[in-house]
Nucleic acid binder design. Structure first.
Lengths: 210, 210
DNA sequence: GACCTATCTGACTGACCGTCAGATTTTTGT
DNA sequence: ACAAAAATCTGACGGTCAGTCAGATAGGTC
Protein backbone atom coordinates (compact mmCIF):
# COMPACT_ATOMS: atom_id res chain seq x y z
CA UNK A 1 0.00 0.00 0.00
CA UNK A 2 2.82 2.43 -0.72
CA UNK A 3 0.49 4.70 -2.64
CA UNK A 4 -1.94 5.30 0.17
CA UNK A 5 -2.51 8.96 0.80
CA UNK A 6 -1.10 10.07 4.15
CA UNK A 7 -1.88 12.79 6.66
CA UNK A 8 0.84 15.04 8.08
CA UNK A 9 1.51 12.59 10.90
CA UNK A 10 1.81 9.66 8.49
CA UNK A 11 -1.42 7.83 9.11
CA UNK A 12 -3.41 6.53 6.15
CA UNK A 13 -6.51 8.59 5.43
CA UNK A 14 -9.94 7.79 4.01
CA UNK A 15 -12.00 9.04 1.09
CA UNK A 16 -13.34 12.21 2.71
CA UNK A 17 -9.92 13.25 3.89
CA UNK A 18 -8.40 12.56 0.49
CA UNK A 19 -10.96 14.88 -1.04
CA UNK A 20 -10.20 17.60 1.51
CA UNK A 21 -6.50 17.22 0.93
CA UNK A 22 -7.08 17.49 -2.79
CA UNK A 23 -9.07 20.69 -2.36
CA UNK A 24 -6.24 22.09 -0.25
CA UNK A 25 -3.71 21.25 -2.96
CA UNK A 26 -5.87 22.81 -5.67
CA UNK A 27 -6.38 25.96 -3.61
CA UNK A 28 -2.65 26.13 -2.99
CA UNK A 29 -1.94 25.91 -6.71
CA UNK A 30 -4.56 28.52 -7.44
CA UNK A 31 -3.28 31.03 -4.90
CA UNK A 32 0.30 30.35 -5.88
CA UNK A 33 -0.63 31.36 -9.41
CA UNK A 34 -2.69 34.36 -8.40
CA UNK A 35 -0.54 35.82 -5.63
CA UNK A 36 2.89 34.23 -5.87
CA UNK A 37 4.77 32.34 -3.22
CA UNK A 38 5.74 35.40 -1.19
CA UNK A 39 2.14 36.24 -0.37
CA UNK A 40 0.91 32.70 0.01
CA UNK A 41 -0.73 32.28 3.42
CA UNK A 42 -2.24 29.20 4.96
CA UNK A 43 -5.25 31.21 6.14
CA UNK A 44 -6.02 32.16 2.56
CA UNK A 45 -5.72 28.58 1.34
CA UNK A 46 -8.12 27.30 3.96
CA UNK A 47 -10.45 30.28 3.58
CA UNK A 48 -10.59 29.45 -0.12
CA UNK A 49 -12.02 26.01 0.57
CA UNK A 50 -14.21 27.31 3.41
CA UNK A 51 -12.16 25.66 6.11
CA UNK A 52 -9.78 26.63 8.90
CA UNK A 53 -5.97 26.61 9.20
CA UNK A 54 -6.08 23.64 11.53
CA UNK A 55 -7.42 21.53 8.68
CA UNK A 56 -4.43 22.38 6.53
CA UNK A 57 -2.03 21.16 9.20
CA UNK A 58 -3.83 17.86 9.35
CA UNK A 59 -2.46 17.05 5.93
CA UNK A 60 0.73 19.05 5.59
CA UNK A 61 3.36 20.01 8.11
CA UNK A 62 3.80 23.33 6.34
CA UNK A 63 3.07 25.07 3.04
CA UNK A 64 6.31 23.76 1.57
CA UNK A 65 5.03 20.23 1.84
CA UNK A 66 1.96 21.09 -0.21
CA UNK A 67 4.00 22.90 -2.85
CA UNK A 68 6.41 19.97 -2.98
CA UNK A 69 3.53 17.65 -3.71
CA UNK A 70 2.33 19.95 -6.49
CA UNK A 71 5.84 19.99 -7.89
CA UNK A 72 5.85 16.20 -7.96
CA UNK A 73 2.56 16.25 -9.82
CA UNK A 74 4.06 18.67 -12.33
CA UNK A 75 6.93 16.27 -12.88
CA UNK A 76 4.42 13.64 -13.94
CA UNK A 77 3.11 16.00 -16.61
CA UNK A 78 6.65 16.55 -17.82
CA UNK A 79 7.40 12.91 -18.51
CA UNK A 80 5.54 12.70 -21.84
CA UNK A 81 7.76 15.47 -23.21
CA UNK A 82 10.73 13.11 -23.26
CA UNK A 83 9.27 11.11 -26.13
CA UNK A 84 9.56 14.23 -28.29
CA UNK A 85 13.30 14.30 -27.74
CA UNK A 86 14.78 11.35 -29.57
CA UNK A 87 18.14 11.50 -31.36
CA UNK A 88 17.85 11.64 -35.13
CA UNK A 89 16.45 15.10 -35.80
CA UNK A 90 17.53 15.59 -39.41
CA UNK A 91 17.52 18.41 -41.91
CA UNK A 92 14.14 17.41 -43.28
CA UNK A 93 11.99 17.15 -40.20
CA UNK A 94 14.26 18.31 -37.37
CA UNK A 95 13.03 21.88 -37.18
CA UNK A 96 9.45 20.71 -37.20
CA UNK A 97 10.20 18.26 -34.39
CA UNK A 98 11.77 21.13 -32.46
CA UNK A 99 8.54 23.07 -32.92
CA UNK A 100 6.54 20.17 -31.58
CA UNK A 101 8.67 20.02 -28.49
CA UNK A 102 8.49 23.78 -27.96
CA UNK A 103 4.71 23.72 -28.30
CA UNK A 104 4.38 20.89 -25.82
CA UNK A 105 6.77 22.59 -23.45
CA UNK A 106 4.76 25.82 -23.67
CA UNK A 107 1.58 24.03 -22.67
CA UNK A 108 3.37 22.31 -19.81
CA UNK A 109 4.84 25.61 -18.65
CA UNK A 110 1.58 27.52 -18.89
CA UNK A 111 -0.10 24.89 -16.75
CA UNK A 112 2.50 24.73 -14.01
CA UNK A 113 4.56 27.91 -14.13
CA UNK A 114 3.69 29.13 -10.64
CA UNK A 115 4.54 25.79 -9.06
CA UNK A 116 7.70 25.42 -11.14
CA UNK A 117 8.88 28.89 -10.19
CA UNK A 118 8.31 28.11 -6.54
CA UNK A 119 10.11 24.79 -6.94
CA UNK A 120 13.09 26.42 -8.60
CA UNK A 121 13.33 29.16 -6.00
CA UNK A 122 13.26 26.67 -3.15
CA UNK A 123 15.81 24.50 -4.92
CA UNK A 124 18.11 27.44 -5.57
CA UNK A 125 17.82 28.56 -1.99
CA UNK A 126 19.10 25.17 -0.96
CA UNK A 127 16.03 23.19 0.11
CA UNK A 128 17.07 19.62 -0.51
CA UNK A 129 13.59 18.21 -1.09
CA UNK A 130 12.92 20.70 -3.84
CA UNK A 131 16.39 20.14 -5.25
CA UNK A 132 15.67 16.46 -5.49
CA UNK A 133 12.38 17.02 -7.28
CA UNK A 134 13.85 19.56 -9.65
CA UNK A 135 16.81 17.35 -10.39
CA UNK A 136 14.58 14.39 -11.08
CA UNK A 137 12.39 16.42 -13.41
CA UNK A 138 15.31 18.00 -15.21
CA UNK A 139 17.14 14.71 -15.59
CA UNK A 140 14.24 13.28 -17.56
CA UNK A 141 14.60 16.01 -20.14
CA UNK A 142 18.31 16.60 -19.83
CA UNK A 143 19.33 13.00 -20.39
CA UNK A 144 17.31 12.96 -23.59
CA UNK A 145 18.79 16.30 -24.67
CA UNK A 146 22.32 15.25 -23.74
CA UNK A 147 21.97 12.13 -25.88
CA UNK A 148 21.07 14.32 -28.85
CA UNK A 149 24.04 16.59 -28.22
CA UNK A 150 26.36 13.63 -27.92
CA UNK A 151 25.12 12.37 -31.26
CA UNK A 152 25.83 15.79 -32.82
CA UNK A 153 29.30 15.93 -31.30
CA UNK A 154 30.11 12.39 -32.48
CA UNK A 155 28.97 13.28 -36.00
CA UNK A 156 31.26 16.35 -35.82
CA UNK A 157 28.34 18.63 -36.47
CA UNK A 158 28.81 20.15 -33.00
CA UNK A 159 32.16 21.24 -31.51
CA UNK A 160 33.58 18.92 -28.86
CA UNK A 161 34.03 21.87 -26.52
CA UNK A 162 30.34 21.37 -25.73
CA UNK A 163 29.72 19.31 -22.62
CA UNK A 164 26.50 17.45 -23.50
CA UNK A 165 25.02 17.67 -20.07
CA UNK A 166 25.76 21.36 -19.65
CA UNK A 167 24.37 22.05 -23.10
CA UNK A 168 21.25 20.21 -22.12
CA UNK A 169 20.99 22.38 -19.03
CA UNK A 170 21.40 25.46 -21.19
CA UNK A 171 18.59 24.33 -23.46
CA UNK A 172 16.27 23.71 -20.52
CA UNK A 173 17.26 27.12 -19.17
CA UNK A 174 16.39 28.80 -22.46
CA UNK A 175 13.01 27.13 -22.57
CA UNK A 176 12.10 27.92 -18.99
CA UNK A 177 13.30 31.45 -19.05
CA UNK A 178 11.98 32.53 -22.40
CA UNK A 179 8.56 31.40 -21.32
CA UNK A 180 8.94 33.19 -18.01
CA UNK A 181 10.02 36.37 -19.80
CA UNK A 182 7.18 36.06 -22.25
CA UNK A 183 4.77 38.63 -20.79
CA UNK A 184 7.56 41.16 -20.55
CA UNK A 185 8.85 40.52 -24.04
CA UNK A 186 5.38 40.80 -25.49
CA UNK A 187 5.44 44.46 -24.48
CA UNK A 188 8.61 44.92 -26.52
CA UNK A 189 7.08 43.50 -29.66
CA UNK A 190 8.25 39.90 -29.53
CA UNK A 191 5.00 38.00 -29.69
CA UNK A 192 4.35 34.42 -28.70
CA UNK A 193 5.01 33.24 -32.22
CA UNK A 194 8.41 34.93 -32.47
CA UNK A 195 9.35 33.28 -29.21
CA UNK A 196 8.13 29.93 -30.49
CA UNK A 197 10.08 30.19 -33.74
CA UNK A 198 13.23 31.48 -32.13
CA UNK A 199 13.19 28.85 -29.44
CA UNK A 200 12.67 26.07 -31.97
CA UNK A 201 15.48 27.39 -34.16
CA UNK A 202 17.88 27.72 -31.25
CA UNK A 203 17.02 24.24 -30.02
CA UNK A 204 17.45 22.76 -33.44
CA UNK A 205 20.81 24.47 -33.83
CA UNK A 206 22.16 23.74 -30.38
CA UNK A 207 21.06 20.10 -30.40
CA UNK A 208 21.88 19.00 -33.91
CA UNK A 209 24.46 21.45 -35.25
CA UNK A 210 22.66 21.55 -38.60
CA UNK B 1 20.23 67.58 -5.30
CA UNK B 2 18.53 64.63 -6.93
CA UNK B 3 21.09 62.23 -5.52
CA UNK B 4 20.49 63.09 -1.89
CA UNK B 5 19.74 60.00 0.14
CA UNK B 6 16.15 59.94 1.36
CA UNK B 7 14.31 58.41 4.31
CA UNK B 8 11.10 56.39 3.82
CA UNK B 9 9.00 59.55 4.10
CA UNK B 10 11.09 61.36 1.50
CA UNK B 11 13.05 63.78 3.65
CA UNK B 12 16.77 64.26 3.03
CA UNK B 13 18.94 62.57 5.65
CA UNK B 14 22.35 63.34 7.14
CA UNK B 15 25.63 61.50 7.41
CA UNK B 16 24.78 59.37 10.43
CA UNK B 17 21.50 58.28 8.92
CA UNK B 18 23.14 57.49 5.60
CA UNK B 19 25.55 55.21 7.43
CA UNK B 20 22.69 53.46 9.25
CA UNK B 21 20.77 53.04 6.02
CA UNK B 22 23.88 51.57 4.43
CA UNK B 23 24.31 49.07 7.24
CA UNK B 24 20.68 48.06 6.81
CA UNK B 25 21.21 47.50 3.09
CA UNK B 26 24.35 45.46 3.71
CA UNK B 27 22.62 43.36 6.35
CA UNK B 28 19.70 42.82 3.97
CA UNK B 29 22.05 41.61 1.23
CA UNK B 30 23.86 39.36 3.68
CA UNK B 31 20.72 37.73 5.04
CA UNK B 32 19.25 37.44 1.56
CA UNK B 33 22.31 35.43 0.61
CA UNK B 34 22.39 33.33 3.76
CA UNK B 35 18.70 32.60 4.24
CA UNK B 36 16.94 33.45 0.99
CA UNK B 37 14.04 35.79 0.44
CA UNK B 38 11.42 33.50 1.93
CA UNK B 39 12.98 33.60 5.39
CA UNK B 40 14.07 37.21 5.29
CA UNK B 41 12.65 39.04 8.31
CA UNK B 42 12.97 42.67 9.23
CA UNK B 43 13.68 41.73 12.85
CA UNK B 44 16.70 39.74 11.72
CA UNK B 45 18.03 42.54 9.57
CA UNK B 46 17.84 45.04 12.40
CA UNK B 47 19.11 42.55 14.95
CA UNK B 48 22.10 42.03 12.68
CA UNK B 49 23.10 45.68 12.96
CA UNK B 50 22.16 45.83 16.65
CA UNK B 51 19.10 47.96 16.10
CA UNK B 52 15.32 47.64 16.22
CA UNK B 53 12.65 47.16 13.52
CA UNK B 54 11.49 50.75 13.91
CA UNK B 55 14.84 51.90 12.58
CA UNK B 56 14.38 49.90 9.42
CA UNK B 57 11.07 51.57 8.71
CA UNK B 58 12.68 54.97 9.00
CA UNK B 59 14.49 54.30 5.76
CA UNK B 60 12.35 51.81 3.87
CA UNK B 61 8.60 51.39 3.66
CA UNK B 62 9.08 47.64 3.48
CA UNK B 63 11.69 44.96 2.76
CA UNK B 64 10.93 45.14 -0.94
CA UNK B 65 12.16 48.71 -1.05
CA UNK B 66 15.52 47.69 0.37
CA UNK B 67 15.85 44.77 -2.03
CA UNK B 68 14.88 47.04 -4.91
CA UNK B 69 17.68 49.39 -3.98
CA UNK B 70 20.13 46.49 -3.88
CA UNK B 71 18.88 45.40 -7.30
CA UNK B 72 19.57 48.88 -8.65
CA UNK B 73 23.07 48.71 -7.24
CA UNK B 74 23.55 45.36 -8.97
CA UNK B 75 22.48 46.93 -12.25
CA UNK B 76 25.34 49.42 -11.91
CA UNK B 77 27.76 46.52 -11.68
CA UNK B 78 26.26 45.02 -14.81
CA UNK B 79 26.86 48.04 -17.02
CA UNK B 80 30.57 47.38 -17.63
CA UNK B 81 29.67 44.00 -19.14
CA UNK B 82 28.14 45.70 -22.16
CA UNK B 83 31.53 46.81 -23.43
CA UNK B 84 32.43 43.12 -23.84
CA UNK B 85 29.55 42.65 -26.27
CA UNK B 86 30.40 44.54 -29.43
CA UNK B 87 29.49 43.24 -32.91
CA UNK B 88 32.44 41.89 -34.84
CA UNK B 89 33.27 38.68 -33.02
CA UNK B 90 35.16 36.82 -35.74
CA UNK B 91 36.56 33.33 -36.23
CA UNK B 92 39.97 34.31 -34.88
CA UNK B 93 39.14 35.97 -31.58
CA UNK B 94 35.39 35.50 -31.21
CA UNK B 95 35.47 32.46 -28.99
CA UNK B 96 38.02 34.11 -26.74
CA UNK B 97 35.84 37.20 -26.49
CA UNK B 98 32.93 34.97 -25.56
CA UNK B 99 35.08 33.50 -22.78
CA UNK B 100 35.87 36.98 -21.49
CA UNK B 101 32.21 37.82 -21.33
CA UNK B 102 31.33 34.56 -19.61
CA UNK B 103 34.07 35.11 -17.03
CA UNK B 104 32.91 38.63 -16.29
CA UNK B 105 29.33 37.48 -16.10
CA UNK B 106 30.29 34.74 -13.64
CA UNK B 107 31.91 37.25 -11.31
CA UNK B 108 28.92 39.52 -11.56
CA UNK B 109 26.56 36.65 -10.86
CA UNK B 110 28.56 35.32 -7.92
CA UNK B 111 28.50 38.75 -6.32
CA UNK B 112 24.82 39.42 -6.72
CA UNK B 113 23.04 36.11 -7.19
CA UNK B 114 20.82 36.35 -4.12
CA UNK B 115 19.64 39.83 -5.00
CA UNK B 116 19.19 38.96 -8.67
CA UNK B 117 17.15 35.89 -7.80
CA UNK B 118 14.94 37.98 -5.55
CA UNK B 119 14.62 40.60 -8.27
CA UNK B 120 13.63 38.04 -10.88
CA UNK B 121 11.11 36.37 -8.62
CA UNK B 122 9.44 39.68 -7.79
CA UNK B 123 9.46 40.66 -11.44
CA UNK B 124 7.98 37.35 -12.53
CA UNK B 125 5.33 37.59 -9.87
CA UNK B 126 4.27 40.89 -11.39
CA UNK B 127 5.79 43.57 -9.17
CA UNK B 128 6.17 46.49 -11.53
CA UNK B 129 9.10 48.17 -9.75
CA UNK B 130 11.15 45.01 -9.97
CA UNK B 131 10.03 44.48 -13.56
CA UNK B 132 11.28 47.92 -14.42
CA UNK B 133 14.65 47.31 -12.80
CA UNK B 134 15.06 43.92 -14.40
CA UNK B 135 14.01 45.22 -17.78
CA UNK B 136 16.46 48.09 -17.53
CA UNK B 137 19.28 45.76 -16.55
CA UNK B 138 18.45 43.21 -19.22
CA UNK B 139 18.04 45.84 -21.92
CA UNK B 140 21.61 46.93 -21.39
CA UNK B 141 22.84 43.48 -22.23
CA UNK B 142 20.08 42.44 -24.60
CA UNK B 143 20.39 45.41 -26.90
CA UNK B 144 24.07 44.67 -27.29
CA UNK B 145 23.36 40.98 -27.87
CA UNK B 146 20.51 41.71 -30.28
CA UNK B 147 22.83 43.92 -32.35
CA UNK B 148 25.25 41.02 -32.66
CA UNK B 149 22.48 38.65 -33.72
CA UNK B 150 21.20 41.14 -36.27
CA UNK B 151 24.69 41.36 -37.71
CA UNK B 152 24.83 37.56 -37.98
CA UNK B 153 21.39 37.39 -39.61
CA UNK B 154 22.29 40.14 -42.10
CA UNK B 155 25.49 38.31 -43.00
CA UNK B 156 23.37 35.16 -43.55
CA UNK B 157 25.42 33.28 -40.99
CA UNK B 158 22.29 32.99 -38.81
CA UNK B 159 18.82 31.97 -40.04
CA UNK B 160 16.32 34.81 -40.33
CA UNK B 161 13.83 32.79 -38.29
CA UNK B 162 15.73 34.09 -35.28
CA UNK B 163 14.18 37.15 -33.70
CA UNK B 164 17.26 39.08 -32.47
CA UNK B 165 15.67 40.30 -29.30
CA UNK B 166 14.27 36.91 -28.35
CA UNK B 167 17.61 35.30 -29.10
CA UNK B 168 19.24 37.85 -26.85
CA UNK B 169 16.77 36.93 -24.12
CA UNK B 170 17.61 33.25 -24.63
CA UNK B 171 21.31 33.98 -24.26
CA UNK B 172 20.77 35.93 -21.05
CA UNK B 173 18.58 33.08 -19.82
CA UNK B 174 21.31 30.54 -20.52
CA UNK B 175 23.87 32.59 -18.66
CA UNK B 176 21.70 33.22 -15.63
CA UNK B 177 20.39 29.72 -15.38
CA UNK B 178 23.58 27.82 -15.96
CA UNK B 179 25.20 29.77 -13.20
CA UNK B 180 22.24 29.18 -10.93
CA UNK B 181 22.35 25.44 -11.70
CA UNK B 182 26.09 25.35 -11.13
CA UNK B 183 26.17 23.88 -7.62
CA UNK B 184 23.74 21.16 -8.67
CA UNK B 185 25.57 20.33 -11.88
CA UNK B 186 28.86 20.16 -10.07
CA UNK B 187 27.51 17.12 -8.25
CA UNK B 188 26.85 15.47 -11.60
CA UNK B 189 30.39 15.96 -12.81
CA UNK B 190 30.10 19.11 -14.86
CA UNK B 191 32.68 21.34 -13.23
CA UNK B 192 32.92 25.10 -13.39
CA UNK B 193 35.27 24.89 -16.34
CA UNK B 194 32.95 22.69 -18.40
CA UNK B 195 30.19 25.19 -17.76
CA UNK B 196 32.46 28.06 -18.73
CA UNK B 197 33.51 26.40 -21.98
CA UNK B 198 30.07 25.25 -22.94
CA UNK B 199 28.52 28.61 -22.23
CA UNK B 200 31.16 30.41 -24.28
CA UNK B 201 30.74 27.99 -27.18
CA UNK B 202 26.96 28.30 -27.13
CA UNK B 203 27.19 32.10 -26.97
CA UNK B 204 29.66 32.22 -29.79
CA UNK B 205 27.47 29.96 -31.90
CA UNK B 206 24.15 31.61 -31.14
CA UNK B 207 25.47 35.15 -31.58
CA UNK B 208 27.70 34.85 -34.61
CA UNK B 209 26.63 31.71 -36.45
CA UNK B 210 30.26 30.75 -37.03
C1' DG C 1 25.05 74.86 29.08
C1' DA C 2 20.59 75.63 26.72
C1' DC C 3 18.28 74.90 22.69
C1' DC C 4 17.11 72.81 18.31
C1' DT C 5 17.02 69.20 15.12
C1' DA C 6 18.11 64.61 13.48
C1' DT C 7 18.02 60.02 14.69
C1' DC C 8 16.68 56.08 17.21
C1' DT C 9 13.68 52.82 19.87
C1' DG C 10 10.27 50.75 23.40
C1' DA C 11 5.96 49.45 23.37
C1' DC C 12 1.89 48.62 21.10
C1' DT C 13 -1.82 46.67 17.57
C1' DG C 14 -3.07 43.49 14.38
C1' DA C 15 -2.20 39.38 11.45
C1' DC C 16 -0.54 34.97 10.74
C1' DC C 17 1.56 30.46 12.23
C1' DG C 18 1.13 26.15 14.23
C1' DT C 19 -1.06 23.33 18.14
C1' DC C 20 -4.45 20.88 20.70
C1' DA C 21 -8.54 19.61 22.98
C1' DG C 22 -12.87 18.83 22.00
C1' DA C 23 -16.90 19.03 18.57
C1' DT C 24 -18.86 16.95 14.49
C1' DT C 25 -19.40 13.60 10.98
C1' DT C 26 -18.88 8.95 9.21
C1' DT C 27 -18.29 4.12 9.79
C1' DT C 28 -18.82 -0.14 12.24
C1' DG C 29 -21.03 -3.64 14.93
C1' DT C 30 -25.12 -5.68 16.59
C1' DA D 1 -32.19 1.33 13.74
C1' DC D 2 -29.21 2.61 17.23
C1' DA D 3 -25.00 3.08 19.97
C1' DA D 4 -20.16 2.89 20.17
C1' DA D 5 -15.84 3.69 17.86
C1' DA D 6 -13.12 5.91 14.53
C1' DA D 7 -12.10 9.53 11.41
C1' DT D 8 -12.27 14.21 10.37
C1' DC D 9 -12.73 18.95 11.37
C1' DT D 10 -12.31 23.42 13.92
C1' DG D 11 -12.45 27.14 17.71
C1' DA D 12 -9.46 29.13 20.47
C1' DC D 13 -5.00 29.95 22.05
C1' DG D 14 0.28 31.23 22.70
C1' DG D 15 4.01 32.84 20.13
C1' DT D 16 6.28 35.61 16.48
C1' DC D 17 6.67 39.15 13.15
C1' DA D 18 5.09 43.49 10.51
C1' DG D 19 4.47 48.03 10.79
C1' DT D 20 3.31 52.53 13.71
C1' DC D 21 4.02 56.24 16.86
C1' DA D 22 5.16 58.91 20.74
C1' DG D 23 8.78 59.90 23.26
C1' DA D 24 13.85 59.21 24.36
C1' DT D 25 18.59 60.07 22.97
C1' DA D 26 22.44 61.95 20.42
C1' DG D 27 24.70 65.64 17.83
C1' DG D 28 25.26 70.14 16.42
C1' DT D 29 24.92 75.39 17.18
C1' DC D 30 25.20 79.52 19.58
Amino acid sequence: MTDDVLAADGRVIGARAIATRRRLLDATAKLLTEQGILDLRVVDITRDIGSSPATFYQYFNDVDEAILELAKEATEDEKPLVSLLQPGWNKKTGLEQAHHFVDAYMVFWDTHHAVLRARNLKAEEGNRHFRAVRTEANLLIMNALAAMVTEGVNAKRLPDSLDPFTTAAAVVAMCERLLAFQPEMAKRGSDKNAIRNTLATLLYGALTGH
